[in-house]
Design a protein around this nucleic acid. Structure first.
Lengths: 216, 216
DNA sequence: GTCAAGTGTCGTGTATACAAGATCGATGTT
DNA sequence: AACATCGATCTTGTATACACGACACTTGAC
């Protein structure tokens, strides 16, 4: 539990939303949440205000809070922006790479290889996350790293779906290999291009998924 | 005044911070703010929680809120990210341009020409903002437009300093011309490159400014 | 039978009260 | 004289109380 209840609740509710425990469009009743977590309405409200500011929920005056449903199109837009930011991170990483960052990326890449080889999509999910975070760190831009991490979190639920798609694990790892090569070679533009494609393809795959579900 | 006091206060305090009325590092006392705006502590706290979530202030548990001082390096990082996002917006705008967006950009560009010609840096400041917003809108990506607008706001105080630099007005407008040409020609990659440079140079100029002040 | 208006109930918005921790100063000791 | 410890005061964190608005249900009229 964090130092103050409000912040703890924010994380709790945020996780509940991102893990789809609270579905998009669902109403978040302050008293229900307060009872569930055994606190009063005050810290619950503070948590909700913060989630509203972040954009995870919407508080309509006098009408309560609902979980925002980004909708397929907006999710695609988010992937599009994410692709650009990851591309920048890769480009900077290639230019600014030092031994420490190199080791971190190599280690994360190695773990991805193991979980991809084992076909363990849950394990790969986490190792993949660590791999991308290693690249953010290597960019040596704190602000960029924060922006990427935040978007990564927001897109987590939609990304997770895709690893179950046939062959995506192997394809993803192959793309990682090329990315690592480009970064280690110091080729910033190539790293940018590859990462942009690597992330962008997830947005497109997501679109395909939605389209196939809509026409089903 | 917005529909509820909390949201109104958030905007009010946010503006006060962005216009440097509250300086970086300054302590924000809840009671002082409450008295100043004639409300109780509750909505003040809600506003502060939101500003904390956005990253404008930091609330240290039991020790109060202070305005975050990004520091020159982080501001440079923010310009770097902004350059990338504006580049993406320009690239999308070039590809997706329709008549309405074309008109909006042309009109905003025209106003920039007038204020630049008059050497009116205050007017140019606002016209420039409108010009960039027209490009965000032309990108037809709501999420991207929001991200750009948010960063634009955050960087406002630092951007404003620069228009006073000698010849920056004319240079900026010249860059705008090339950007408009690329977008209207449908050349996404050129628009991306030009916008990236246009925004990126502001980060570099800011760095120069800081450096010159530090060695003064 | 359907639609509209009014009333009641529920939930949010703001204020206030109380509790707990942090800071600063004073006093005592080394 | 300087440092540490204890205490008072001030500020934040949480709870509770009250007020106002929204929504739903009921009742009456057309």
């Amino acid at each position: 539990m964090s130092e103050n209840v409000g912040r703890w609740l924010r994380d709790e509710i945020e996780n509940a939303i991102l893990s789809n425990e609270f579905s998009p469009g669902e109403r978040l009743d302050e008293m229900v949440l307060a009872n569930r977590f055994g606190v009063s309405r005050t810290p619950v409200r503070e948590a909700l205000m913060q989630l509203d500011a972040i954009g995870l929920i919407e508080i309509r005056p006098r009408r309560g809070a609902v979980v925002i449903d980004p909708g397929p199109h907006r999710i695609y837009e988010m992937f599009e922006v994410m692709a650009e930011l990851e591309g920048l991170a890769g480009s900077l990483a290639a230019r600014r790479l030092d031994d420490e960052a190199r080791e971190a990326i190599a280690a994360a890449h190695k773990r991805c290889e193991l979980s991809a080889g084992a076909g363990d999509s849950d394990a790969y999910y986490y190792d993949n996350e660590a791999f991308h975070k290693a690249i953010y760190a290597a960019s040596r831009s704190d602000f960029l790293a924060e922006q990427c991490t935040q978007l990564h979190r927001r897109l987590r639920p939609y990304r997770r779906l895709q690893l179950r798609v046939r062959n995506r694990l192997a394809t993803s790892f192959t793309e990682h290999c090329a990315i690592v090569d480009a970064i280690f070679a110091g080729d910033g533009e190539e790293a940018r291009r590859l990462l942009r494609a690597h992330v962008g393809i997830q947005g497109e795959r997501f679109s395909d998924l939605v389209a196939s579900m809509a026409t089903r």
